[in-house]
Every structure is written in structure tokens, then in C-alpha cells.
Design a protein around this nucleic acid. Structure first.
Lengths: 190, 190
DNA sequence: CGCCGAGTTGAACTGAATCAAGAAACGTGG
DNA sequence: CCACGTTTCTTGATTCAGTTCAACTCGGCG
């Protein structure tokens, strides 16, 4: 069983085996090498990708600075949801931090899932609300927490990530400089 | 035609008149007086409300401080989406800033819409992605902008709000103190 | 080896918070 | 409709969290 199947089962509860198979077979295995791009800013994000193994980073470039919005490790999706659904150019660039295996589905195939799997709409809704909730929490963290508190919260929930990706990407995603990140980190290690 | 009908038409494009009527009749008119609560933190948010007129503020209380997450004015929805969909206790409190007219639908009735209006799933999806995108933009604003830039961006898109609600609520929602808000405001008015 | 990106550390600086006080606007009860 | 208390908003002085700039270390890789 692939991670993708496990993901769907664990997040969406009981789905008929046949439905599960139908969904999964619409996703195609692809790989992307370290440094390569899954999406470039300004392009339409025409696929939804699930990370089987590896790491992707989604970021925007502002005045020569890269702002990391999201890091997708195995078990996460990577896409510009807004671009994918509304078929508009993306603000984001998605790049592989290491060689990465993906299950990708094109927008075209994605639209078909609903026809094959009636329950899909419900699953999709749950997925979207989950994404919404994650962002809601992040907004809240910026309204009510210090850099240190954001660090701790993220660290508790994503310990593994800290030995997998360059830390300045995490710093950027948490809205602080690498220096601040480093100082907080030192403090927490004592 | 109510604002709710207009909202659905303008945001979701052509919907059959019958479908529109079906959806709208499931929403019940209610009013809520200044200071009253639509939702209290810890309770399950069992309805989705559309603001016909008035103002609602969604906030959480942390260490005696209120953190404003969202202000719903006419033409916006007010709900804890996560609580509403997953039927879990809410972190948020929603309070009326002035006497407010709502169109509200219960979770129970909400579930039925799909049966009556086949196209509903598609509309719902677009709605959710729109909500997602708004939050994504807010996260990005905290990762890449100063308080002043956030102020300006929000002001450009929400001028009307500035003469409708106490400004310290807007300040809180933008992640700054009332004092900082006031100083930036003074600067921009010159 | 030498280079380059990642991470650390220190010192100076600054945007924004905090603290405090006063002015203006508001709404509530008489 | 006025008076009074409360909330909102402003302004100034001070403090502090986090940024910036710069220098240095370390480890991996060509």
C-alpha cells in the first residue's frame, strides 16, 4: 500500500476499497530531482502532487528575498491550491530540496474523480477545510505569539523536519530571520 | 433580491434560478443585538451565517487579551468553518458589534443542500478555496510585510470598514497594537 | 585542497510594544 | 436633551524583541 492510500484512509476514514483504488490510479508516479521545479511563479499550477518521499519547498520571491510559505515532506501535498482550482497564474514557486518521488494528478483527471467516486466531494471538502484550518492556526500564531513561541509550537509538531531541511527555510516559514532562529534554537537546546 | 442571493450569483456565476431559491430558502433570517454572541469559545459552531447588515467580530481570548481574527460586515459569512464542518468545539467567539441581520443555516439543513442542488458541491468547493486563499494571503503578509505595509494593503481593500468598527479591532486583526495602528494612520492621512 | 552554503555569534540598530496620560467620541440613564 | 462614565483614539517616552550587518566556523562536495 502506498503512502497516498494510507493518507486517504487515515484522513478520510472508511472509503470503499474500490473507490480508493480508483482515486489512486488516477495519480501518476513521477520523480523530480534536487533543485528542479514543480511549479514556477507566474505559471498555472496544473497538477496536485502528493509527496511519497523527499522534500519540496514552496516560496515567493520579493525584492530578491525568498519567502518560504510551505515545506512539503512525505505524506503532504504540494500545490498552489488557488491556482490549481481557479486556474490562475501562481504567485509561488515549488522546488525540490532533494530528489523527490511524487504521485501527481492533472487538473483534467482531478475533475473526473467526482464522476467515478460519488463520495469524493465529501472527501475533498474535508481536505480543503483541513488546509484552511492549518492556515487559520498560522495566522493566529502571528497575531498572538512571539518568534520563540512560534518556534516551539512548530518544533513540537515537526521535529523530524529539523534534521531534513536547511533551517533558514523553516525560519522563513515561521516569519523570522535565520539569526533569530539560531538564537532561539540555542536557547531551547540547553 | 437579498444580499445573499446577490452574493451567490456574483461569486459562483450562473446558477439556475430554482437552485438559487432552494438554497436561499434554507437560510433563515435572524437578528442579533449589539453585544450579543453568535458563538462562544468552546461551543460547537452549529450554523453558518451570512451578514445581511451589521457587523460581527470573531476573536479568541488569550491571557486576558482579545485577538481579533476576522470582522464580518455585510456580504460576508461568519462561522468557525473548522468547527462547523468537523463538529468540534470552537476556539473562537463571535460577537455582534452592532445590531446585525443574518441569514443563518443550521448544519443539519446545510447538509441537505447537496441533495437538492447537485451543483452545490462545486460551489462549496469554490467557496472553501476562496477562504483558503484569503488566509494564505494573510500568512504571506506576516512573512513579508511590515505593520505599515499590512495596514496599507488592508486599507486599500477595506476602506469602508475604517469608519464602521473601533479601530483597535482592525489593529488586532492586522497583528499590531492600537498605538502602532494610530501612528501609521496619522502618517497616511497627511 | 579550496570553495560555497549553512549555521553561529556579536554588536549596533530599529520597528513595534509597552507604559502612561490626556483628549475626543459615544451611549445610557436620568 | 443633557450629564456623566466609559470606551476609543492619540501622543510621548521608554523598552525590548527581532533585524541587520559583519565576521567567523564548520562540513560537504567538486
Amino acid at each position: 500500500m502506498t503512502e497516498l492510500e494510507q493518507y486517504i484512509k487515515s484522513y478520510f476514514g472508511i472509503v470503499a476499497i474500490d473507490d480508493l483504488k480508483t482515486i489512486v490510479t488516477l495519480f501518476k508516479t513521477t520523480t523530480i530531482k534536487r533543485g528542479e521545479f514543480l511549479l514556477k511563479s507566474g505559471k498555472y499550477c496544473n497538477k496536485l502532487s502528493f509527496v511519497q518521499s523527499g522534500l519540496l519547498r514552496m516560496f515567493a520571491t520579493i525584492d530578491d528575498k525568498e519567502v518560504t510559505q510551505w515545506i512539503s515532506t512525505n505524506g503532504y501535498f504540494a500545490t498552489d491550491l488557488s491556482s490549481f482550482i481557479f486556474e490562475k497564474p501562481s504567485r509561488w514557486t515549488i522546488q525540490a530540496l532533494v530528489d523527490t518521488e511524487l504521485y501527481s494528478i492533472t487538473k483534467e483527471d482531478y475533475k473526473k474523480i467526482g464522476n467515478f467516486v460519488p463520495k469524493w466531494n465529501e472527501l475533498e471538502k474535508l481536505f480543503l477545510v483541513r488546509c484552511f484550518t492549518i492556515l487559520e492556526d498560522r495566522v493566529f500564531s502571528h497575531l498572538s505569539m512571539t518568534a520563540e513561541e512560534r518556534y516551539n509550537l512548530f518544533f513540537e509538531n515537526n521535529k523530524e523536519l529539523f534534521n531534513q531541511v536547511p533551517l533558514h527555510y523553516i525560519a522563513s516559514m515561521l516569519g523570522m530571520t535565520p539569526e533569530t532562529f539560531s538564537r532561539i534554537r540555542k536557547k531551547q537546546l540547553l
